[in-house]
Protein backbone atom coordinates (compact mmCIF):
# COMPACT_ATOMS: atom_id res chain seq x y z
CA UNK A 1 0.00 0.00 0.00
CA UNK A 2 2.97 2.26 -0.46
CA UNK A 3 1.92 3.36 -3.88
CA UNK A 4 -1.31 5.05 -2.83
CA UNK A 5 0.02 7.23 -0.08
CA UNK A 6 -1.70 10.21 -1.64
CA UNK A 7 -5.13 8.63 -1.22
CA UNK A 8 -7.29 10.60 1.18
CA UNK A 9 -9.69 7.74 1.79
CA UNK A 10 -8.71 4.12 1.33
CA UNK A 11 -11.55 1.66 1.38
CA UNK A 12 -10.51 -1.95 1.82
CA UNK A 13 -12.73 -5.00 1.60
CA UNK A 14 -15.73 -3.08 2.91
CA UNK A 15 -18.68 -5.30 3.71
CA UNK A 16 -22.16 -4.58 4.91
CA UNK A 17 -24.28 -7.66 5.53
CA UNK A 18 -27.79 -7.98 6.86
CA UNK A 19 -29.31 -11.08 8.37
CA UNK A 20 -25.95 -12.76 8.88
CA UNK A 21 -24.93 -12.61 5.27
CA UNK A 22 -28.31 -13.38 3.72
CA UNK A 23 -28.33 -9.90 2.20
CA UNK A 24 -25.05 -8.42 1.09
CA UNK A 25 -25.49 -4.68 0.53
CA UNK A 26 -21.74 -4.28 0.19
CA UNK A 27 -19.59 -7.26 -0.59
CA UNK A 28 -15.95 -6.36 -0.36
CA UNK A 29 -15.54 -2.92 -1.89
CA UNK A 30 -11.99 -1.69 -2.56
CA UNK A 31 -11.26 1.81 -3.75
CA UNK A 32 -8.99 4.77 -3.17
CA UNK A 33 -10.31 8.29 -3.19
CA UNK A 34 -7.59 10.81 -3.87
CA UNK A 35 -7.48 14.44 -2.94
CA UNK A 36 -9.25 16.49 -5.58
CA UNK A 37 -11.11 13.54 -7.05
CA UNK A 38 -14.63 14.06 -8.29
CA UNK A 39 -15.84 10.51 -8.09
CA UNK A 40 -19.27 9.75 -9.44
CA UNK A 41 -20.89 6.50 -8.38
CA UNK A 42 -23.53 5.10 -10.71
CA UNK A 43 -25.42 1.85 -10.81
CA UNK A 44 -28.87 0.29 -10.72
CA UNK A 45 -30.97 0.77 -7.60
CA UNK A 46 -30.16 -1.67 -4.83
CA UNK A 47 -26.59 -1.95 -6.00
CA UNK A 48 -25.19 -0.57 -2.76
CA UNK A 49 -24.23 2.92 -3.96
CA UNK A 50 -25.93 4.75 -1.13
CA UNK A 51 -24.81 2.21 1.46
CA UNK A 52 -21.26 2.67 0.24
CA UNK A 53 -21.49 6.44 0.50
CA UNK A 54 -23.13 6.35 3.93
CA UNK A 55 -20.47 3.94 5.14
CA UNK A 56 -17.78 6.50 4.36
CA UNK A 57 -18.80 8.63 7.32
CA UNK A 58 -20.15 5.65 9.25
CA UNK A 59 -23.81 6.62 9.15
CA UNK A 60 -23.98 2.97 8.17
CA UNK A 61 -21.78 0.75 10.29
CA UNK A 62 -19.90 -1.71 8.10
CA UNK A 63 -19.90 -5.39 9.01
CA UNK A 64 -16.29 -5.84 8.04
CA UNK A 65 -13.41 -4.15 6.29
CA UNK A 66 -11.64 -0.88 6.81
CA UNK A 67 -11.88 2.75 5.80
CA UNK A 68 -8.65 4.66 6.24
CA UNK A 69 -9.24 8.38 6.27
CA UNK A 70 -6.16 10.56 6.45
CA UNK A 71 -4.06 7.71 7.77
CA UNK A 72 -6.44 6.40 10.42
CA UNK A 73 -8.77 3.44 10.25
CA UNK A 74 -12.10 4.91 11.27
CA UNK A 75 -13.86 1.55 11.36
CA UNK A 76 -11.59 -0.42 13.63
CA UNK A 77 -9.56 2.08 15.62
CA UNK A 78 -11.00 3.73 18.68
CA UNK A 79 -11.39 7.26 17.44
CA UNK A 80 -13.61 10.24 18.08
CA UNK A 81 -16.05 9.74 15.27
CA UNK A 82 -17.52 13.25 15.55
CA UNK A 83 -14.17 14.81 14.73
CA UNK A 84 -13.95 12.75 11.58
CA UNK A 85 -17.49 13.44 10.55
CA UNK A 86 -17.01 17.18 10.72
CA UNK A 87 -14.26 16.79 8.11
CA UNK A 88 -16.65 15.06 5.71
CA UNK A 89 -19.61 17.09 4.53
CA UNK A 90 -22.71 15.20 3.52
CA UNK A 91 -25.64 16.22 1.34
CA UNK A 92 -28.79 14.09 1.45
CA UNK A 93 -31.45 13.25 -1.07
CA UNK A 94 -34.15 14.80 1.12
CA UNK A 95 -32.08 17.83 2.18
CA UNK A 96 -32.69 17.25 5.90
CA UNK A 97 -32.57 20.92 6.78
CA UNK A 98 -33.59 21.69 10.35
CA UNK A 99 -37.19 22.92 9.96
CA UNK A 100 -37.32 24.77 13.28
CA UNK A 101 -34.36 26.99 12.46
CA UNK A 102 -33.92 29.75 9.91
CA UNK A 103 -31.55 29.24 6.98
CA UNK A 104 -28.87 31.25 8.72
CA UNK A 105 -29.29 29.27 11.94
CA UNK A 106 -29.13 26.05 9.94
CA UNK A 107 -25.78 27.15 8.58
CA UNK A 108 -24.24 28.57 11.73
CA UNK A 109 -25.32 26.05 14.38
CA UNK A 110 -22.72 23.36 13.75
CA UNK A 111 -19.75 25.75 13.24
CA UNK A 112 -20.62 27.32 16.57
CA UNK A 113 -21.27 24.28 18.73
CA UNK A 114 -18.89 21.84 17.03
CA UNK A 115 -16.03 24.07 15.94
CA UNK A 116 -16.46 26.67 18.65
CA UNK A 117 -16.59 29.59 16.23
CA UNK A 118 -18.08 32.86 17.37
CA UNK A 119 -21.53 33.79 16.13
CA UNK A 120 -20.20 36.69 14.03
CA UNK A 121 -17.51 34.55 12.45
CA UNK A 122 -19.96 31.76 11.60
CA UNK A 123 -22.52 34.18 10.19
CA UNK A 124 -19.95 35.99 8.08
CA UNK A 125 -18.85 32.78 6.44
CA UNK A 126 -22.42 31.53 6.05
CA UNK A 127 -23.58 34.72 4.35
CA UNK A 128 -20.54 34.70 2.09
CA UNK A 129 -21.31 31.16 0.94
CA UNK A 130 -25.05 31.86 0.69
CA UNK A 131 -24.24 34.78 -1.56
CA UNK A 132 -22.28 32.51 -3.84
CA UNK A 133 -25.25 30.20 -4.35
CA UNK A 134 -27.51 33.23 -4.82
CA UNK A 135 -29.58 32.83 -1.65
CA UNK A 136 -28.27 35.60 0.57
CA UNK A 137 -31.65 37.32 0.64
CA UNK A 138 -33.30 34.17 2.06
CA UNK A 139 -31.06 33.98 5.13
CA UNK A 140 -33.85 34.72 7.57
CA UNK A 141 -36.42 32.46 5.89
CA UNK A 142 -37.41 29.04 7.20
CA UNK A 143 -36.74 25.90 5.15
CA UNK A 144 -40.45 25.37 4.36
CA UNK A 145 -40.47 28.69 2.54
CA UNK A 146 -37.86 27.53 0.02
CA UNK A 147 -38.23 25.47 -3.12
CA UNK A 148 -36.56 22.08 -3.36
CA UNK A 149 -33.67 23.40 -5.39
CA UNK A 150 -33.10 26.23 -2.95
CA UNK A 151 -33.22 23.80 -0.02
CA UNK A 152 -30.61 21.59 -1.59
CA UNK A 153 -28.34 24.55 -2.28
CA UNK A 154 -28.68 25.55 1.37
CA UNK A 155 -27.91 21.97 2.41
CA UNK A 156 -24.71 22.07 0.36
CA UNK A 157 -23.75 25.38 1.93
CA UNK A 158 -24.49 23.95 5.38
CA UNK A 159 -21.96 21.19 4.79
CA UNK A 160 -19.45 23.67 3.36
CA UNK A 161 -19.68 25.88 6.43
CA UNK A 162 -17.75 23.19 8.31
CA UNK A 163 -14.79 23.47 5.88
CA UNK A 164 -14.92 19.78 5.01
CA UNK A 165 -12.10 18.01 3.19
CA UNK A 166 -14.50 15.72 1.36
CA UNK A 167 -18.08 16.24 0.24
CA UNK A 168 -20.39 13.26 -0.01
CA UNK A 169 -23.52 13.63 -2.13
CA UNK A 170 -26.27 11.06 -1.76
CA UNK A 171 -28.49 11.42 -4.84
CA UNK A 172 -28.71 15.18 -4.35
CA UNK A 173 -31.04 15.78 -7.28
CA UNK A 174 -33.31 12.73 -7.08
CA UNK A 175 -36.00 14.40 -4.98
CA UNK A 176 -36.11 17.57 -7.06
CA UNK A 177 -38.50 18.71 -9.75
CA UNK A 178 -36.74 18.50 -13.12
CA UNK A 179 -36.48 22.26 -13.58
CA UNK A 180 -34.57 22.58 -10.31
CA UNK A 181 -31.95 19.96 -11.00
CA UNK A 182 -29.83 22.39 -13.01
CA UNK A 183 -29.33 24.95 -10.27
CA UNK A 184 -28.07 22.31 -7.83
CA UNK A 185 -25.75 20.68 -10.36
CA UNK A 186 -24.40 24.15 -11.15
CA UNK A 187 -23.33 24.61 -7.52
CA UNK A 188 -21.72 21.17 -7.53
CA UNK A 189 -19.83 21.97 -10.72
CA UNK A 190 -18.50 25.14 -9.13
CA UNK A 191 -17.31 23.11 -6.17
CA UNK A 192 -15.60 20.58 -8.39
CA UNK A 193 -13.83 23.38 -10.25
CA UNK A 194 -12.45 24.71 -7.01
CA UNK A 195 -10.80 21.37 -6.39
CA UNK A 196 -13.08 20.00 -3.67
CA UNK A 197 -12.82 16.27 -3.21
CA UNK A 198 -16.27 14.91 -3.98
CA UNK A 199 -17.97 11.55 -3.96
CA UNK A 200 -21.34 11.72 -5.61
CA UNK A 201 -24.01 9.08 -6.01
CA UNK A 202 -26.25 10.22 -8.81
CA UNK A 203 -28.45 9.28 -11.72
CA UNK A 204 -27.41 12.36 -13.68
CA UNK A 205 -25.30 10.78 -16.39
CA UNK A 206 -24.66 14.16 -18.01
CA UNK A 207 -23.17 15.43 -14.78
CA UNK A 208 -21.13 12.26 -14.34
CA UNK A 209 -19.66 12.62 -17.80
CA UNK A 210 -19.02 16.33 -17.65
CA UNK A 211 -17.77 16.88 -14.12
CA UNK A 212 -16.51 13.56 -12.83
CA UNK A 213 -12.89 12.64 -13.29
CA UNK A 214 -13.61 9.11 -12.17
CA UNK A 215 -16.77 7.14 -12.63
CA UNK A 216 -17.47 4.05 -10.58
CA UNK A 217 -20.09 1.55 -11.65
CA UNK A 218 -21.54 -0.55 -8.84
CA UNK A 219 -23.83 -3.56 -8.99
CA UNK A 220 -24.75 -6.20 -6.40
CA UNK A 221 -22.68 -4.60 -3.68
CA UNK A 222 -19.49 -4.49 -5.65
CA UNK A 223 -17.56 -2.20 -7.93
CA UNK A 224 -17.82 -3.73 -11.36
CA UNK A 225 -15.99 -1.15 -13.40
CA UNK A 226 -14.11 2.03 -12.68
CA UNK A 227 -12.40 4.60 -14.86
CA UNK A 228 -12.58 7.93 -16.62
CA UNK A 229 -15.97 9.05 -17.90
CA UNK A 230 -14.82 8.38 -21.48
CA UNK A 231 -13.88 4.83 -20.61
CA UNK A 232 -17.09 4.09 -18.73
CA UNK A 233 -19.55 5.76 -21.07
CA UNK A 234 -17.88 5.27 -24.45
CA UNK A 235 -15.99 2.02 -24.00
CA UNK A 236 -17.79 -0.02 -21.36
CA UNK A 237 -16.33 -3.48 -20.90
CA UNK A 238 -18.53 -5.54 -18.60
CA UNK A 239 -21.91 -6.75 -19.83
CA UNK A 240 -23.60 -5.41 -16.66
CA UNK A 241 -22.43 -1.88 -17.41
CA UNK A 242 -23.36 -2.13 -21.07
CA UNK A 243 -26.80 -3.33 -20.07
CA UNK A 244 -27.18 -0.52 -17.50
CA UNK A 245 -26.03 2.21 -19.85
CA UNK A 246 -28.33 0.87 -22.54
CA UNK A 247 -31.28 1.26 -20.21
CA UNK A 248 -30.34 4.67 -18.78
CA UNK A 249 -29.19 6.46 -21.90
CA UNK A 250 -32.10 5.18 -23.91
CA UNK A 251 -34.62 6.76 -21.53
Amino acid sequence: MTTDNTALIKVRDLKKHYNYGAIKALDGVNIDINKGDVMVVIGPSGSGKSTFLRSLNLLEEPTDGSIVFDGRDIVNEKINLDEFRERMGMVFQHFNLFPHKTILENLTLAPQIVKGKSKEEAEKKALELLDRVGLKDRASAYPVQLSGGQKQRVAIVRALCMDPEVMLFDEPTSALDPEMVGEVLEVMKELAKEGMTMVCVTHEMGFAREVGNRVVFMADGNIIEEGTPEKIFDHPESPRLKDFLGKVLEA
Partner: peptide, 24 residues
Amino acid sequence: GQTEAARSLGMSKAQTMYHIILPQ
Protein backbone atom coordinates in the same frame (compact mmCIF):
# COMPACT_ATOMS: atom_id res chain seq x y z
CA GLY B 1 -32.79 12.25 8.52
CA GLN B 2 -32.53 15.05 11.08
CA THR B 3 -30.28 12.94 13.26
CA GLU B 4 -28.22 11.88 10.28
CA ALA B 5 -27.80 15.46 9.11
CA ALA B 6 -26.77 16.64 12.56
CA ARG B 7 -24.35 13.77 13.13
CA SER B 8 -22.84 14.22 9.66
CA LEU B 9 -22.02 17.81 10.66
CA GLY B 10 -20.02 16.45 13.57
CA MET B 11 -22.52 17.09 16.36
CA SER B 12 -22.39 14.66 19.25
CA LYS B 13 -25.37 12.59 20.30
CA ALA B 14 -26.17 14.97 23.14
CA GLN B 15 -25.88 18.06 20.93
CA THR B 16 -28.12 16.46 18.33
CA MET B 17 -30.71 15.65 20.97
CA TYR B 18 -30.64 19.11 22.53
CA HIS B 19 -30.42 21.34 19.46
CA ILE B 20 -32.20 19.32 16.79
CA ILE B 21 -34.44 16.57 18.10
CA LEU B 22 -36.02 17.95 21.28
CA PRO B 23 -37.17 21.30 19.82
CA GLN B 24 -39.03 19.35 17.13
